[in-house]
Every structure is written in C-alpha cells, then in structure tokens.
Design a protein around this nucleic acid. Structure first.
Lengths: 147, 147
DNA sequence: TCTGATAATCAGTAATACTGAATATCAGCT
DNA sequence: AGCTGATATTCAGTATTACTGATTATCAGA
C-alpha cells in the first residue's frame, strides 16, 4: 500500500528534472557541430513557409524578445537567415531563411532526431509511445498554467 | 506506420526538456517560503543519520564543490546546519543538521511532495506509476553515461 | 498632428556554474 | 623527524544565461 519513495532522488519529479537536463545537454551537443543550439533550429523551423516577425517568433517559441535579437543575429552571421523590413509595418523585421538555412535546418532536424533516438534508446517502441503520451499530457497541462 | 511528429515542439525529447523546466520551477516555488531551494533540501536529507563531509555531499548530490560551499553557508545562515571539523581528518568539514534543520527538512519534504502531486495531477495513478518506471529507466541509463 | 501603443535594439543586472589558485591537512616514504 | 604528493575547503575571477528598463522608429486612431 506504500509505494512512496523515501529519498527525494527516487521521486519521479526529481528524475523528470534530471532527465530534462540530460536531454537538453544531448540536444546541445548534437547541434554543436552545426554551430547552433536548439533555439536556432526552432526559429529556422518556424520561418519555413510563414512570414514572421521577431515578435511572432517570440510568441511561437516562448523566447524573450532580447534573446530573439541574439538568435537572429547568430542565424544571420551563419548565413542561415536574414532580416527584411516589413513593407506593411516598417517596425517589424521579417525573418527569412536562406537556401543554406533551409538545408541547415534539415540537417539539424536529423541530428536532433538521432539524439532523441539515443536518449530514448533504453525504451522499447511501446514504452516510447507510452512516455510520449504521458509527457504530452503533462506538457499540455503546464502550457495551460500561467507560467 | 508513420508516428513521427513533424514539428520539433511535438517531439517527446523537446517536451521532456520543457516538463523538466516546469518541474524545477515548481519545486523552487514550493520551497521559496522556506528560504530554500531543492539543493538545500537534498543536503538536509543526506546529513540526517550519516556523518558526511562536504566532499561526500558533492558525490551524493552531484553538486560542484564550490556550489556546496555556498549551500552549506546558506544552511548555516538559516540555522539548519553547522560545520564541524572532523576529528579523524581535520581537512574535512562534517556537516550536521540542527534540530531546526531536521524539522525544516520534514516541512520541505512535504512541500516538495505537494508540488509533485500538483505536477502529476493530470495523470491517473496508473499513469503516474507508468511514468515513474519509464523515467527511472531513462534516469539510470543517463547515470551510466559519462555525463 | 498629437497621443499612446508596438517592434526591435542596446546597455546593464542578477543568477548560475564553473576554473584555477591558495591554504591547511593528510598519508606514505625515507 | 622531514619531505612529497594528494585531498578538503575556500575564495576570486570568468563565462553564460535570461532578464529589466531605456531608446528609437514606426504605427493607428482621435
């Protein structure tokens, strides 16, 4: 009747935090050869197709506006994107991918997928599906909260 | 046959990172009224019973030695622990809890448990068990890695 | 043509986690 | 006893992160 863990480090919450850190480090490492971090890939993904200002990108990704300035700076420096002033609203900087940026995104997406494969390697296919569903539930519940 | 998510933000790996952040923030918030953070509680927990030096605590918790100095400083300032020079090895500072520290740990453990309850609230009991098992597997696999 | 709001940028700040150096002490060898 | 290399703790300094607040340019509406 008593399934409660004694030590804090045996609790699911603690382990969720740790696994999140490990996953974040793995994704950083997977993208390091490309000179990017996950946030850059998120932006490259978002600007495929759409015409998005930095502010739009902030809302889509949850990044701070000042962080977004730096991320777009870096994507420009890498030759993966460039800013254009919006003709409709000249306050806005529309961020557009370059051809190199589009293929860099493809490569980064593959690298992230491989890192995720390695991360979830200890789990069977059924277990991964199960984990995906459970984490999605927690994710959506968290998204509905103020934070 | 194709269960792969299109967007990065739909992947389990990305969500694991996010959920980890949310959990960490929830634990910080739960302990804020006590003037502590999870790392302080980890140390308070470890020093119940055992006779541990700061170095021992570093190995148990994974914290850096310089971080541990600050954590023990803060526990002393709160009146929850104090350093004693080890008689056996005078290089070592044995960290011992005060009576106030022991009850503060109990209260902190309750606060963390409540925060975990809230975090896992969206899941049924069966789902929590399932998540706990899956996260434990990932956690142990990560612990075996060099990082 | 004002007024208040919004977009992007920049400068400065606070927190985090670390590296490397300094000090004190130990354990083993001669 | 005295020397050598290693260990425990501490401190100072560094790099990174994520932010707040101020600034400039532009917009939309009275």
């Amino acid at each position: 009747m008593r399934a409660q863990a004694d030590r804090i480090s045996d609790h699911t919450g603690y382990r969720l935090v740790k696994v999140g850190h490990v996953a974040a480090a793995a994704f950083d490492e997977a993208l390091a050869p490309l000179g990017m971090r996950p946030r850059h890939v998120m932006v490259l993904e978002a600007i495929r197709g759409g015409t998005l200002s930095q502010q739009d990108l902030c809302q889509l990704t949850g990044m701070d506006r000042t962080t977004m300035v730096a991320v777009v700076d870096e994507l420009e420096r890498l030759g993966y994107a460039h800013r254009e002033r919006s003709a409709a609203d000249r306050r806005k900087h529309v961020v557009k991918p370059t051809a190199a940026g589009e293929s860099a995104f493809e490569e980064a997406a593959r690298a992230l997928l491989a890192a995720e494969e390695a991360l979830l390697g200890p789990l069977s296919a059924a277990e991964r599906d199960s984990l995906g569903g459970l984490v999605a539930k927690l994710f959506e519940a968290a998204a509905r909260r103020p934070g």
